[in-house]
Simulated assay, not measured.
Amino acid sequence: MGQTLGLIHTSPVLTQMFGTLCARQMPGVEVFHMVDESLIRDTIRAGEVRKLTIRRLLSMVESAGEAGADAVMVTCSSLGEAVTLAQQVFDFPVIRVDEAMAEAAVRTGEKLGVMATIRTTLEPTTALLREKAAAMGRKVELVECLCDGAFEAVLTGDTKTHDRIVSAALLDEMRGVDAVVLAQASMARVVEAMPEGSLKMPVLSSPELSVQRAREVLQELAGASA
């Protein structure tokens, strides 16, 4: 019997990106998507992940498991606190979209740039990087960059302005760092569109690495049940 991965998004624009990545990296796995934009909108409005939002996300994770998901991945970094809680609550794997990225970044260097378009994503990402660094016994210096105006541009459908702001910040604000972490999955396409060789440091984004982690998790599950 084939395996199933449930993906929970807070933006519909991520369904195609993650669907394509999953089809490429684990073609034998069935994937389904659940989307609730209100989760991120409420978090931005409140400036934090409210208990109500945590309960709602846990309910979505539970629904995904009941719908047949062998593992569930939440693709919104702003909800990292709630995802960590879900990992403790459910018997099936729940994957944080930014966890594999954070681990890779800490292994890459000591001075890390962290970029986001909203503060509610920047803060949990920096917290995760410090947590992973401590667990791995490594010291990190974090250079934070909030790309003002980029998220608002996306909300109006102006992806060109979003991409211009993010790419300019990559070139101007991230000089001298060992690596850059893009805190939001939606930022990944900006790097792909930039001219080859324009960035002198590695830039890590969560989509590719998180799907690789999901594949590894599912392979471990398959091995355990064999």
Results as ranks from 00 to 15, higher is better:
5 L>I: 01
107 R>N: 11
120 T>M: 03
222 A>Y: 06
207 P>S: 08
105 A>L: 09
172 D>E: 15
129 L>Y: 07
113 G>S: 06
223 G>Y: 10
146 L>A: 14
123 E>F: 13
198 S>M: 14
144 E>Y: 03
197 G>E: 08
222 A>W: 05
101 M>H: 10
50 R>N: 08
89 V>G: 02
12 P>C: 03
218 L>Y: 15
96 R>L: 03
11 S>M: 05
215 R>V: 01
160 K>Q: 14
198 S>T: 12
185 A>R: 11
190 V>K: 06
79 L>N: 03
181 V>C: 14
205 S>T: 10
221 L>W: 01
72 V>E: 01
189 R>D: 01
87 Q>L: 03
65 G>M: 03
216 E>N: 11
96 R>E: 05
66 E>H: 08
16 Q>A: 05
95 I>C: 02
169 A>T: 00
163 D>A: 13
197 G>K: 03
147 C>K: 09
82 A>G: 10
208 E>L: 06
112 L>M: 06
119 R>V: 13
121 T>C: 09
166 V>F: 02
220 E>L: 02
20 T>G: 00
175 R>W: 05
5 L>K: 12
204 L>H: 06
149 G>I: 07
134 A>H: 08
132 K>W: 01
78 S>D: 07
141 E>R: 09
178 D>A: 12
46 A>Y: 10
143 V>H: 07
109 G>T: 09
95 I>S: 04
16 Q>C: 00
193 A>K: 15
102 A>L: 12
99 E>W: 12
72 V>M: 03
41 R>L: 13
156 T>S: 11
91 D>H: 08
10 T>V: 13
104 A>N: 03
116 A>Y: 01
40 I>N: 04
135 A>L: 04
196 E>P: 10
54 I>G: 02
42 D>N: 13
18 F>Q: 13
168 A>R: 15
52 L>V: 15
135 A>C: 02
60 M>I: 02
215 R>W: 09
111 K>H: 15
136 M>D: 12
152 E>T: 06
59 S>Q: 11
138 R>C: 10
122 L>C: 08
175 R>C: 12
208 E>R: 06
2 G>R: 13
187 M>H: 05
64 A>P: 14
193 A>T: 13
86 A>N: 05
88 Q>H: 14
218 L>M: 11
155 L>M: 14
154 V>Y: 05
67 A>I: 00
23 A>L: 04
77 S>H: 11
35 V>D: 01
56 R>N: 14
216 E>F: 01
68 G>D: 07
190 V>T: 13
176 G>Q: 02
39 L>G: 02
99 E>T: 02
